[in-house]
């Protein structure tokens, strides 16, 4: 109990410090999320049009995913140095898998009869994609987006180990100065950010699912 009170006290005393970290954390995550979304969705769409390289791209992102995050951060430091650049590259590399995979799978799993009908009626490839495939795949893409956002926010906490800002700074400082309350408050704030985004995106996902399929469960 006393521990929780001390944490509360810390939060009040160092309000500006934590607010600044939360702000940095959100900005860092948002930039990474923007990168991941643009690159991931484009690549995901591209490999539905270039099936021969689809498996290769998916396998490569899978491999990226299996590298321990700490190792990847450390590895990047020797190329792009300490700071936000390395953090962004690492976050992007990790978050890209769910987006590419869900975009690809979502589009590939659109009922072939529907695709055939759309082509048979004279859709160009662009029209097929924008008017039929993406709208129908949207719930799946959003599900991937949701996973990625939560993951990126959590992972951004580690980014401070290579000199990036964000709540990781508090965690890192807590650990190095043996200040447990600081570590826990930082971790809780990261968790809170992740859970909050998950909650909001969950609502969005349900809304889109209902629009596309008429139920929240799926087809």
């Amino acid at each position: 109990m006393a521990f929780i009170v001390r944490m509360g006290q810390l939060l009040v005393d160092r309000k500006d410090f934590f607010l600044k970290l939360v702000g940095e954390h959100i900005v860092l995550s948002l930039i990474a999320i923007a990168w991941i979304t643009v690159i991931g969705i484009s690549l995901g769409i591209y490999i539905t049009r270039q099936k021969r390289i689809a498996n290769l791209v998916l396998a490569m992102t899978n491999v990226l995913y299996t590298i321990p995050s700490i190792a990847l951060f450390g590895f990047l430091v020797s190329f792009t140095g300490i700071g936000n650049t390395s953090a962004l590259i690492a976050l992007t590399a990790y978050g890209i898998l769910p987006i590419i995979r869900n975009t690809y799978v979502g589009i590939e799993e659109v009922d072939p009869q529907i695709v055939e009908a759309a082509i048979g009626m004279g859709s160009t490839d662009r029209q097929l994609l924008l008017k039929v495939q993406i709208p129908i795949a949207l719930p799946v893409i959003i599900a991937g987006f949701r996973t990625m956002v939560v993951m990126t926010i959590a992972l951004a906490g580690i980014a401070s180990f290579i000199g990036a800002g964000g709540l990781g700074v508090a965690i890192w400082r807590g650990i190095t100065t043996n200040f447990t309350e600081m570590t826990v408050v930082g971790s809780l704030l990261v968790a809170l950010l992740a859970m909050g985004s998950d909650l909001i995106l969950g609502l969005v996902e349900r809304l889109i699912r209902r629009r596309v399929f008429g139920t929240e469960k799926g087809v």
Binding site: D111, Q113, I114, M121, G122, V132, R211
Partner: peptide, 20 residues
Amino acid sequence: PIALRRKIGYVIQQIGLFPH
């Protein structure tokens, strides 16, 4: 082919209506 298909009506077995 695009122009041709737009001039030809096409109905398939599973109907292929767009759910969205």
